[in-house]
């Protein structure tokens, strides 16, 4: 049985599982409307212009929805699978856990991207923002890299959460702080300097800049943001590889794969 087959079946299984859950349907289909209104009203009250609305309301709410969906699906799935005892079973199967988990994250991310587009569409209609771009190829490339960066962050975070049974607590703690840290809603330059530098470690911070740049008229920073996006993605691929090696041993030492 090839790895690609496991990847595909995990991808399909995860989409069937996730979409059957009312909570995921809410996060995927309803939450994008709320995030659009919240950010839209903040910027409307602040009297900001269309440029801010495109960057921080339209794209910001889209990314917030994407992040929320990923938190409550890919990352939250560790807890669900632990509770239903399937985590320990898939972990102890002959297939490499990384392949199984990547398939599941791809499935969740595929569904979560829908919430991104719902949010973008709704907020642009609600606040009358025209989405325009100079180069469709750059937009497509930046969207692709954005998705890859969310996938790699999901992998690293969910690996870490296999070590603890307090996943629900961490899951809820991750949404808002990281939304601010990555700069979904506000520029990261508004953050205190040490935190701003910390945010630059994460690929999501760079891909957001890349995505905003691809929609703007000024594309001169596109290459710069693209380089840092790829660099930090490679860094996190390396980190997730190291994390897997650690958690592979530690989960068996700590015995955190199931609820008993």
């Amino acid at each position: 049985m090839k790895s690609s087959s496991v990847l595909w079946t995990s991808f399909i299984l995860q989409m069937k599982q996730s979409f059957a859950r009312p909570m995921f349907k809410y996060v995927m289909l309803v939450s994008p409307f709320l995030s659009s209104v919240i950010l839209g009203e903040i910027y409307r009250y602040a009297g900001r212009g269309d440029e801010y609305f495109l960057s921080y309301v339209v794209l910001g709410s889209g990314l917030w929805s994407l992040w929320g969906s990923i938190i409550f699906s890919s990352i939250g799935d560790i807890n669900r699978e632990r509770f239903t005892n399937t985590l320990s079973i898939i972990f102890s199967s002959p297939t490499d856990f990384r392949i199984i988990w990547l398939g599941k994250i791809l499935g969740n991310t595929f569904l979560s991207v829908i919430s991104f587009f719902i949010s973008v569409l709704f907020s642009s209609i609600l606040y009358g923002i025209t989405i325009s771009f100079n180069n469709f190829g750059f937009v497509l490339l930046s969207l692709l890299i954005t998705i890859v960066s969310f996938i790699i962050i999901s992998i690293s975070t969910s690996y870490l959460l296999t070590l603890s049974r307090k996943t629900t607590l961490f899951m809820n703690c991750l949404e808002f702080p990281f939304m601010l840290l990555f700069g979904f809603a506000f520029p990261v330059s508004m953050l205190p300097t040490p935190i701003m530098y910390f945010s630059y470690i994460f690929p999501i911070t760079w891909v957001i800049k890349l995505l905003r740049s691809s929609f703007s008229e000024n594309l001169e920073n596109f290459g710069y943001y693209l380089s840092f996006s790829i660099l930090t993605i490679v860094l996190f691929i390396f980190i997730s590889h190291l994390l897997y090696k650690i958690i592979y041993k530690q989960t068996k030492i700590l015995g955190t794969l199931d609820m008993v």
Binding site: M1, V6, T9, L13, K16, I90, S93, I100
Partner: peptide
Amino acid sequence: RLSARDNLRYFANLY
């Protein structure tokens, strides 16, 4: 949330 057959197919793949 999956059928018995889907579960068995999935685990057959993993094994």
